Amino acid sequence: MQRVNMIMAESPGLITICLLGYLLSAECTVFLDHENANKILNRPKRYNSGKLEEFVQGNLERECMEEKCSFEEAREVFENTERTTEFWKQYVDGDQCESNPCLNGGSCKDDINSYECWCPFGFEGKNCELDVTCNIKNGRCEQFCKNSADNKVVCSCTEGYRLAENQKSCEPAVPFPCGRVSVSQTSKLTRAETVFPDVDYVNSTEAETILDNITQSTQSFNDFTRVVGGEDAKPGQFPWQVVLNGKVDAFCGGSIVNEKWIVTAAHCVETGVKITVVAGEHNIEETEHTEQKRNVIRIIPHHNYNAAINKYNHDIALLELDEPLVLNSYVTPICIADKEYTNIFLKFGSGYVSGWGRVFHKGRSALVLQYLRVPLVDRATCLRSTKFTIYNNMFCAGFHEGGRDSCQGDSGGPHVTEVEGTSFLTGIISWGEECAMKGKYGIYTKVSRYVNWIKEKTKLT
């Protein structure tokens, strides 16, 4: 034993070699072989497995989906700052455009905790909710729209109204504003409101030439003092309507412009014939205590009207009353817009006519005020429907199939267009061939041609 100890002390290297040989010859039971080890760690190889990531292109799944990435790591994937920024906006807080917040056709661009709407022409605001041009839906104005110097929408209202708090709607500024039905039992019968379409306001006024200088022999019209197929109006439903009495009662109609003036057809009036105007009328054979009678003290036909040349060209006249009318729910003026808007309103496509005229061709006159909704007829169809001249200051309205029309005794009465609950004068009943005849239409004086003249002559002093 002493000898062994001496050998170990003198030859430590020998001992180490012996131990190493023993270990190498022993069977290893701690580690699995290569094949079995792979069965336990069965993990798919990654895209760049075996390579240094710093030297390969980034992978979106590896960089940002398996674990949260930084902007720089995302930049490695896209290799483009702009594309990385677009991805980053949604990656950080989701897609803010998912709810489609942009209105009126706006395009949404996502941002971090926010979004941006790219608005089409005519709109602005956070969600493109603000109209900035009158060309689109009248700028959301209830009545009139004008573009300011910086191309912003400025709404306005006709006389007797003021802008509401929203700067879009119009509200009454006087007790009985024009064009409004205020009798409670008839307010439910107000005709369907007309909503502004998209309009090209630059070209809204037709490029028409008034044929002022045409000389033409007097034409022989049949029954051209021209509501057939209409309905009984309720008291106060058309408070701007008046009836004219002269040699015979209810020979023509008219509309209240203001307390002192009536507008009617020029062919209705004769110099030297006494005319009485009755406002607030409903049943011409009954006294309903809503009527107001006034005498006409002055007749002003349009300066281009000449019955000797043509009885229905420039067929418009103004009547001055001896005493002002007292405005109330049964006696209310009709609204008159400017030339541009009167023309736009007419193009809405349908209007209402009213009167006490004959209820059928050569038949009896109506006792109760009649009204009828009539569609506008395109000019080409209008011209083809008659052998008589249709001037540019006239328009056609009615039904091709016949059966409904204005008729004798309705002449001078109103053709009105309702705009968001307020009625505007767009025409004056003038003439036609018979009444409600198939293929024939009622012919009306186009008020847009005469609004400046009306307003100039009827100013209240």
Score class of each variant (00 low, 15 high):
residue 393 N to C: 03
residue 452 N to K: 11
residue 9 A to P: 13
residue 98 E to L: 12
residue 263 V to A: 04
residue 244 L to M: 07
residue 353 V to F: 03
residue 290 T to P: 05
residue 170 C to F: 00
residue 460 L to V: 05
residue 325 L to G: 00
residue 162 R to K: 09
residue 247 K to A: 15
residue 120 P to V: 13
residue 73 E to C: 00
residue 225 T to D: 15
residue 55 F to V: 11
residue 335 C to T: 00
residue 158 T to H: 10
residue 273 V to D: 09
residue 257 V to L: 06
residue 303 H to D: 11
residue 101 P to Y: 04
residue 337 A to N: 00
residue 189 L to R: 12
residue 28 C to P: 08
residue 128 C to M: 03
residue 287 T to M: 15
residue 14 L to D: 02
residue 335 C to A: 00
residue 60 L to Y: 04
residue 385 S to E: 08
residue 140 R to D: 09
residue 121 F to D: 08
residue 20 L to R: 02
residue 166 N to H: 03
residue 32 L to H: 13
residue 461 T to K: 09
residue 240 W to F: 03
residue 128 C to Y: 02
residue 32 L to G: 08
residue 176 F to T: 07
residue 24 L to V: 11
residue 429 I to K: 15
residue 82 E to F: 04
residue 79 E to A: 08
residue 136 I to Y: 13
residue 160 G to K: 02
residue 415 H to Y: 08
residue 187 S to H: 08
residue 54 E to G: 01
residue 409 G to M: 14
residue 87 F to D: 03
residue 142 E to N: 05
residue 347 K to T: 09
residue 15 I to Q: 06
residue 260 K to M: 06
residue 348 F to Q: 09
residue 161 Y to H: 05
residue 237 Q to M: 09
residue 85 T to H: 07
residue 289 H to P: 15
residue 315 D to A: 02
residue 237 Q to F: 09
residue 387 K to P: 09
residue 43 R to K: 02
residue 325 L to C: 01
residue 382 C to A: 03
residue 170 C to M: 00
residue 344 I to Y: 15
residue 182 S to K: 06
residue 123 F to C: 03
residue 370 Q to C: 05
residue 360 F to R: 15
residue 41 L to M: 06
residue 77 V to E: 02
residue 82 E to T: 11
residue 286 E to M: 11
residue 37 A to R: 02
residue 263 V to R: 00
residue 259 E to N: 07
residue 441 Y to N: 03
residue 261 W to P: 00
residue 188 K to H: 08
residue 369 L to M: 15
residue 324 P to N: 05
residue 270 E to H: 07
residue 420 E to Y: 11
residue 5 N to C: 14
residue 402 G to A: 15
residue 459 K to W: 06
residue 162 R to S: 12
residue 397 A to H: 02
residue 34 H to Y: 15
residue 39 K to R: 13
residue 366 A to H: 14
residue 394 M to F: 08
residue 125 G to W: 02
residue 156 S to P: 00
residue 108 C to I: 03
residue 385 S to L: 10
residue 370 Q to S: 11
residue 75 R to C: 04
residue 344 I to G: 09
residue 29 T to M: 13
residue 221 F to R: 11
residue 269 V to Q: 03
residue 457 K to V: 10
residue 339 K to P: 15
residue 249 D to H: 10
residue 158 T to R: 01
residue 134 C to W: 03
residue 248 V to A: 08
residue 383 L to W: 12
residue 162 R to Q: 09
residue 226 R to S: 07
residue 447 V to N: 00
residue 136 I to W: 09
residue 68 K to G: 06
residue 119 C to N: 03
residue 213 N to E: 09
residue 242 V to I: 05
residue 266 A to S: 04
residue 221 F to W: 14
residue 381 T to Q: 12
residue 429 I to N: 15
residue 137 K to F: 09
residue 309 I to T: 07
residue 4 V to K: 14
residue 245 N to S: 09
residue 379 R to P: 15
residue 51 K to I: 10
residue 445 T to R: 01
residue 105 G to N: 08
residue 293 K to Q: 11
residue 372 L to I: 14
residue 159 E to D: 12
residue 226 R to N: 15
residue 321 L to K: 00
residue 382 C to F: 03
residue 415 H to G: 01
residue 413 G to M: 11
residue 344 I to C: 05
residue 354 S to P: 05
residue 388 F to V: 14
residue 330 Y to A: 07
residue 255 S to E: 02
residue 420 E to M: 14
residue 385 S to H: 15
residue 97 C to P: 03
residue 451 V to G: 04
residue 432 G to F: 05
residue 304 N to A: 10
residue 161 Y to W: 11
residue 123 F to P: 03
residue 47 Y to R: 05
residue 307 A to V: 07
residue 317 A to F: 00
residue 360 F to A: 09
residue 147 N to I: 10
residue 145 C to A: 04
residue 382 C to D: 01
residue 393 N to M: 03
residue 210 I to A: 14
residue 130 L to C: 07
residue 3 R to C: 14
residue 230 G to T: 14
residue 353 V to G: 02
residue 94 G to T: 14
residue 246 G to I: 05
residue 306 N to I: 05
residue 6 M to A: 14
residue 195 V to C: 06
residue 347 K to D: 07
